[in-house]
């Protein structure tokens, strides 16, 4: 029996929700910019983010996670995904689950049911962070300008995710497909990253996608 206070934290669709980049009015920029942009930015807005903690070596834990999510627990610096659902290694006992908007409450309940009785933690952090997707042939150049971490494919293959120092602040870089990278950022830093990415990708051409 858990005493965790589990409740639906997302208000209904009739309640106005502003994304972390609401003030930048990204929809007004859709379809503008160069014809062949080197970098395409997409705000993956208002997704569900859950932090999951538990004992990685406990087969009851890893089995329970697989039962609840259909995803295997990734090992160090890994991210696994299935459709819109992704599970990322954050530390030896911590993972980040990102799911489509509105599914986080159901997934949290599934996880708690499958992991009942174990020493675990599930926290909804959807309000605290957001996801930016960068795609295009010049994304790696933009990342190389911004971080000291080696983003060459030999060192950073698809399916790897690292939390690192980026442009004097800190975020998570995820390599999801050959030319597709994701940045998991703090909500309060969204404007800073937006300004930084505009500046860093200006020379390659930046487009905003829906």
């Amino acid at each position: 029996m858990t005493t965790a206070n589990v409740y639906q934290q997302r208000p209904g669709d009739d309640v106005k929700a502003e994304t972390p980049l609401h003030h930048a009015n990204l929809p007004s920029l859709f379809g503008k910019g160069r014809n062949n942009p080197g970098v395409t930015l997409r705000e993956r807005k208002l997704l569900g983010h859950l932090t999951l903690r538990g004992e990685a070596h406990d087969s009851a834990f890893s089995g329970g996670v697989h039962k609840a999510l259909g995803l295997e627990l990734p090992v160090a610096l890994g991210v696994v995904s299935q459709g819109e659902l992704s599970l990322q290694w954050m530390g030896p006992d911590e993972w980040l689950l990102i799911c489509p908007r509105g599914q986080e409450f159901a997934l949290e309940q599934q996880l708690r049911e499958a992991l009942a009785g174990l020493h675990i933690q599930v926290v909804n952090v959807s309000g605290g962070q957001t996801l930016l997707e960068l795609s295009g042939p010049s994304v790696r150049q933009v990342l190389m300008k911004s971080t000291s971490y080696d983003v060459h494919p030999d060192n950073f293959p698809v399916g790897k995710a690292v939390s690192t120092v980026f442009a004097k602040s800190q975020l998570i870089i995820r390599h999801m497909a050959e030319d597709t990278w994701e940045l998991v950022i703090r909500r309060s830093f969204a404007d800073y990253w937006w300004l930084w990415l505009q500046d860093a990708s200006a020379e390659y051409g930046l487009a905003i996608a829906e």
Partner: peptide, 11 residues
């Protein structure tokens, strides 16, 4: 020892 790779000192 947890990430099992060399990382920059600033981290």
């Amino acid at each position: 020892p947890h990430c099992a790779e060399l990382r920059s000192e600033e981290e």
